[in-house]
């Protein structure tokens, strides 16, 4: 019996093995060329746009590597026509078997075409807010602000509401401000506008907006809306409430908390109220000390 290795040597020295090797090298060259061409094209056509760069890179890699693979297969004696026909039948079978993936791929193509967001944008999808890391064949990858990696299938992206927080250059900060019923609303308005005027991050134009919201249970409610550059949105949202509180304190404007008045009907006498502490302080002094103090 021949040892297995002579068979092996026979095989690898045959011209057929050489062809296979050649084909493998060809595919390797295709992949490398595709990558190089992708990087070059991306640098040429999409210097700043991360998303376009990604698409160019992928297209050139798949295209060039695919051509090289086809040529390598042809050299090996495969008939591409037959292969493609077989692929057609296979597609139907695979399509049924992998409906989800196929729908994700198609959705991904639509996402790339519609461009509701680009790589680097901040988006909010069904409660998840994060920065878009990549838009791939099957899913969109997000990095949330607490540094978690979130993968959202393209199909979900297409079906659900997506909010792009970075699409427009300016944003509005909406604050709910409640003031006590006794306050002069004109003065409140003036104070609020002055606060907006003083804050340099708050845009002068579009002008700040004060909207009456309603007579609430314990406060008159207003919506105070100021504009900021999208990048300064958080800074303004954090600085404006502090400044409103300071200005209200300065002008003696009360921000009320829920009040409850007890009323027993008009027929009864007022509630008897008895004071238990002797002094003006909220906590009565211990009786021993008080006695001593009186003796002195």
């Amino acid at each position: 019996m021949e040892p297995w290795w002579t068979l092996f040597v026979d095989y690898i020295t045959s011209p057929r093995a050489l062809d296979v090797l050649q084909a493998a090298i060809k595919i390797g060259i295709g992949v490398v060329l595709g990558r190089l061409a992708g990087n070059g094209l991306a640098r040429l056509f999409a210097d700043a746009d991360a998303q376009r760069a990604m698409i160019i890179r992928r297209a050139s890699l798949y295209g060039i590597a695919g051509l090289f693979t086809a040529s390598a297969l042809m050299e090996l004696g495969f008939d591409l026509g037959v292969l493609l026909g077989a692929a057609g039948i296979l597609t139907v079978a695979i399509g049924f078997a992998s409906q989800t993936s196929a729908s994700n791929v198609i959705s991904g193509l639509f996402l790339l075409g519609e461009r509701p967001f680009a790589v680097g944008d901040i988006i909010r999808v069904s409660g998840t807010t994060g920065e878009v890391l990549s838009i791939d064949l099957l899913s969109v990858k997000l990095r949330t602000f607490d540094n978690l990696f979130v993968r959202i299938p393209n199909e979900t992206m297409i079906k659900s509401e997506v909010t792009n927080l970075r699409r427009f250059p300016i944003r509005r900060v909406d604050l709910q401000v409640g003031v006590a019923y006794k306050e002069d609303l004109r003065q409140v308005r003036e104070v609020l506008l002055e606060v907006a005027d003083r804050n340099p991050l708050c845009l002068e134009e579009p002008p700040p907006l004060i909207l009456f919201q309603g007579y609430g249970d314990s406060a008159i409610n207003h919506q105070f809306s100021v504009w900021a550059k999208t990048e300064n949105f958080l800074d303004l949202r954090n600085s404006i409430p502090v400044e409103i509180k300071e200005a209200f304190d300065e002008h003696g404007i009360e921000i009320p908390f829920p009040h409850r008045t007890l009323y027993t009907g008009s027929e009864t006498a007022p509630f008897p109220v008895q004071s238990t502490s002797q002094g003006p302080g909220p906590t009565p002094e211990p009786p021993d000390d008080a006695g001593e103090a009186r003796q002195d």
Binding site: F168, P169, I170, P200, L201, L203, E205, W227, K229
Partner: peptide
């Protein structure tokens, strides 16, 4: 430090 403002035909471009 002058206050910021937006100058343009709309909130989208400017």
């Amino acid at each position: 430090r002058m206050s910021d403002t937006w100058f343009g035909p709309s909130t989208v471009e400017g």
